[in-house]
Design a protein around this nucleic acid. Structure first.
Length: 483
DNA sequence: TTTTGAGTTGTTCGA
DNA sequence: GTCGAACAACTCAAA
């Protein structure tokens, strides 16, 4: 060990102090700790944080910074390139060790590998940790030693391993250096939009580690018991709403896992206990997404199934724009797209419906949808986004069979039976009786008149006919198989 | 190596 | 209105 024993902790997608292996490792050395964040979007390539993510990141950094301040510490914020920034901070502070928790996005893995070897050959001690997954993605293999491509088998294999370790507490003591290195303010990174479009997001979310913990607590003591069926209802608050916290690492999956497990063990067998298992399985899907991202990194841009490379995706810009703005004429689809635009989030059930509509009814390339989600979701996560879109499009791992095409009318009636979700996000339809709320174009003229709605004016007519679009999608698949 | 069973979230059609 | 089968064929995972 060198004379300095000062450590740099490089914060990335782990903007928390509890259950933070890298921070704990640095604290354990007993010497000064320099917490660092580096803004380097150019190193993320095409998948640099979108507008909604940057908005969230701004607040998350403020929150982390305040938490560190209250411990007598400082968050040292710099701009990239990351390697140069770390080298500079090490030189300024005399730090001899650098710790971080791993990320798994392909561009980041390449970058971090290079940074690690360069720092090591410069004489620094460098160590990385798993702070983002329940099971390290690279260790899960099938009996042939290959990565799984089917969820059930993957998850069975994970569950046969020792249970994820319990979360570690935040370090009780962190030592500050004698002098702090120069740093930028969060504001200087320019993450916030120049025009304030984020009012709806601001109202919908509280940001930071404390808020993440409160949301977890609220979910575990409340909605989790009804998760099995409640999670499918966009008109109710039945989902966990933990996704953005998990993405930015304000919450670790281990914290969520053990919090739910503790509650589950208190319960008699039955619906509530099944609901807990159902939620844990959803955490499993997140694990599967990271597993696929690590083993099939090309899938962020290309279909996993080769035969889909030839699929005749259309490039209908008008249709894409109508979808993005929530003007397709299908109420559930439009409600979802507007919820997304307003709050930076969309209910999971509705994500499937809108994605299926874009890819199958409109035949637009799934990558256009993935890009829109990437820019507008506060929980945009490369692993989850890639898996989700390829699943819907039918070109990914364990994908929905292509002939499985969501019917937006039936989905609406089934999962938003009272029409409350539609009325909330498409208020121009609010006066429609529930019977017609999911298919306004079928509404008798007299009913439309009473409700004061003129189709094609106040609310658009459907941009495609469901039955026609469905047949077209099936035909496109058949054709691409022959060709 | 070959075989066998299985595979998140649906829809439509005909009885 | 309800029910079961068909929808296509393929690939994965394990025996």
């Amino acid at each position: 060990m060198s004379a300095s024993d000062t450590s740099i902790v490089w914060f990335r997608h782990d903007l928390r102090l509890a259950d933070h292996p890298a921070l704990v490792a640095a604290a354990k050395r007993g010497g000064p700790v320099i917490p660092v964040f580096i803004w380097a979007p150019e190193e993320e390539g095409k998948w640099a944080a979108g507008a909604a993510s940057r908005w969230w990141l701004h607040r998350s950094l403020k929150s982390l910074s305040e938490s560190l301040d209250s411990l007598g510490m400082r968050l040292t914020i710099r701009r990239g390139p990351s390697l140069a920034a770390i080298q500079a901070i090490a030189a300024e502070t005399g730090a001899d060790a650098v710790y971080w928790n791993r990320r798994y996005e392909p561009a980041i893995v390449l970058r971090d590998t290079k940074i690690k070897s360069t720092l090591k050959s410069g004489g620094l001690h460098v160590e990385s940790f798993n702070g983002a997954c329940l099971f390290e993605p690279s260790i899960i293999k099938n009996k042939q030693g290959k990565p799984f491509q089917v969820f059930s088998a993957f998850w069975r294999s994970c569950l046969s391993l020792p249970e994820p370790t319990t979360p570690i507490r935040r370090p009780s003591k962190l030592v500050a250096p004698k002098t702090w290195p120069k740093r930028l303010t969060v504001e200087a990174l320019g993450l916030e939009p120049r025009v304030d479009w984020a009012g709806g997001i601001r109202e919908a979310w509280k940001i930071g580690e404390a808020a993440a913990g409160q949301q977890l607590k609220r979910f575990v003591s409340g909605g989790a018991a009804g998760y099995l069926t409640g999670r499918d209802r966009p008109d109710r608050a039945g989902t966990s709403r933990l996704s953005p916290y998990l993405h930015f690492g304000e919450l670790s999956p281990r914290q969520a896992w053990h919090s739910v497990r503790r509650r589950q063990s208190d319960m008699p067998p039955g619906d509530a206990e099944d609901s807990m298992a159902c939620f844990l399985r959803e955490l499993g899907w997140r694990e599967f997404a990271y597993h696929l991202l690590v083993h099939f990194p090309h899938t962020v841009n290309e279909p996993l199934r080769d035969q889909f490379r030839a699929f005749p995706w259309g490039h209908d810009d008008a249709a894409l724009a109508a979808w993005q703005r929530g003007q397709t004429g299908y109420p559930v689809v439009d409600a979802g797209m507007r919820e997304l635009w307003t709050t930076g989030w969309m209910h999971n059930r509705v994500r499937m419906v809108v994605a299926s509509f874009l890819v199958k009814h409109l035949l637009v390339d799934w990558r256009a949808g993935a890009a829109w989600f990437w820019d507008t979701l506060v929980d945009a996560d490369l692993a989850n986004n890639t898996l989700g879109w390829q699943w819907v499009a039918g070109c990914g791992a364990d994908a929905a069979p292509y002939f499985r095409i969501f019917n937006p009318i039936l989905q609406g009636r089934k999962f938003d039976p009272g029409g409350d979700y539609v009325r909330k996000w498409a208020p121009e339809l609010a006066a429609l009786p529930t019977k017609w709320i999911h298919a306004p174009w079928e509404t008798p003229p007299s009913v439309l008149e009473t409700a004061g709605i003129r189709l094609g004016r106040a609310y658009p007519k459907p941009i495609v006919d469901h039955a026609t679009a469905r047949k077209r999608a099936l035909a496109a698949l058949a054709e691409s198989r022959q060709g």
